[in-house]
Structures are given as C-alpha cells and as structure tokens.
Amino acid sequence: MWENVAEVREVAFHVTRFTPERDVKPRVQTFQVPVRAGMTVLEGLHYIKENLDSSLVWRYSCRMGVCGSCGMLLNGRPGLACNTQIFDIAGTDLTVGPLPNFDVVRDLIPDLVPMFSKHAGLRPHVVREDAADQDDPAGEYFQTPAQLEEFLQFTYCIKCACCMAACPTLATDAGYLGPMPLAQVQRYNVDTRDGGRGERLAAAGAAHGVFRCHYAGECSRVCPKGVDPAKAIQHLKRQLVLDYLHLARRQKPCAKQHGPGKGTRDPQIPASPPRTIGA
C-alpha cells in the first residue's frame, strides 16, 4: 500500500508512438512523469500531453470505466487507462502501447472496426419474428428475474476490446470472431424475449467461431467490467453441442404481456413521485 499520499515519484512512461505520415513502424518514446498515489495511467498521459509533448494522441471519453474508449496495453497487459492506477502495476517504469491484434491508426489508437463489424454481423439485439413490433414495440415482454440473471452479467460489456487484445487465438486467426462478439451472442441467445438464436448459432458455430476458443481465459482475466466472456463462450459451446445432439430444450420467444397502460400496478411498487417539470 502506498502510505504517503503526498509523495511524488518519477515513473518512466515508455509510450508507443506511430505517425503514419512519417514512421515506417512504431517507435517507443520515454517520458518522465511525476506520479502521486491514486493517479491513473490516463492522468499520466494527460500530464505528458499538457507538459511534455502535445502531439501524443489516444482515445478516451468518460474517464470512469464506462465508455470503453481507453483500452491500452499497460505493462504488457490490456486494460483501461482510466481505471488502472499507475502504482498498482508499475514501480519505476511503465510501458503504454496500443491494444494488439488491431491495426494501429496513430500512437495509442487501434482501429476497432473489425471487432465492431463482427459484432454487428451477429445481430446483437433482441430479434422478434414480427418486424413491425420489433421496431415499434407496443407492450412489455414477460421476463422473470431468474431469466434476466441468465444473461445480465454479459450486458455489462462496454466494448473496450481488451479481451480481443488478450486472446491468443485472435493473435493467430484474424478471422476468429473473438471473445466480445461471442459473449454477446450468448447474451442475446439466452434472452427469453429473443427469437434470433438459430441465425446467431449458425455464425458462432462456423469455422472461425466459438470452437476456435480453447479456454486460455485471458479475456476474462483482463475484462475491466467482470463480464467473463470465457464463461459465456463455454456456455455457448454447450448450447451448440446440445443443439447438434437434438438435446436442447426448445424455447419460443416469450409473449407480450400487455400493451402500454393496460397492465395493473403491482401493489408492492410505490407510486412514482409527482412530476417536478412539465407538470
């Protein structure tokens, strides 16, 4: 534990730089950064930009582990710059690089489009047979808390790509769908409101799909949100195997409970407070 909060220690940031107009390949530039206890890698990068080299670029937005923009390779391991404290992972030296397994656009910025394309191709949303109702739902769908828990953990994904950068399978197979998109397949497949399971399973079970994963588990270890994509992927494999053996329980997407305003209020739920604006 860092006892003296006021104490400042110099940490050498070895930052990967890449300027596509000039550099043939990335190079490493070292900056001395004065670090206090509690300071995050993101703050360290801001210090560099404000005081040492304003040309350094990286991606960030929320600076609180929510937007998923600031994934980087920190001392050889993918993580969010904004929720990694420097002293938690570094003594006197810290290497900061772009997330591997993606092309580098500039400095610390990876091109995440391949990941998002794979994700989008797997229909990561609730799919209903009735397309009109899907676009403009006219009521609530019935779902119990237990059914919600079957996928809730996987909904916390912020699409930061740390898992994709850590996956050894993705390192050698660029076509592999990868932990994030596959975890989202499981997230929607077990959602009782969904009817798109068949289509997603066909894609997930194909050549570069779920069976390329051999549970190195690195995706779950680095995930900053506790999503545990490796768990989702193993459950997905089980689904595929059971389907193949015709042992899976068939489940129809749940029915609509009632239209808006047609339900009855559960007496245990207190009435909402009076409106304060637009009343």
Binding site: F18, P20, K25, P26, P98, L99, P100, N101, F102, D103, V104, V105, P110, D111, P168, L170, A171, T172, A174
Partner: peptide, 10 residues
C-alpha cells in the same frame, strides 16, 4: 496503418 497482430508470439 501498422499491423499490430501478435501472430505466433501472441
């Protein structure tokens, strides 16, 4: 761009 795939070392 720079191809940052780790390949076999990954």
């Amino acid at each position: 761009r720079h191809d940052n795939r780790l390949g076999i070392w990954g």
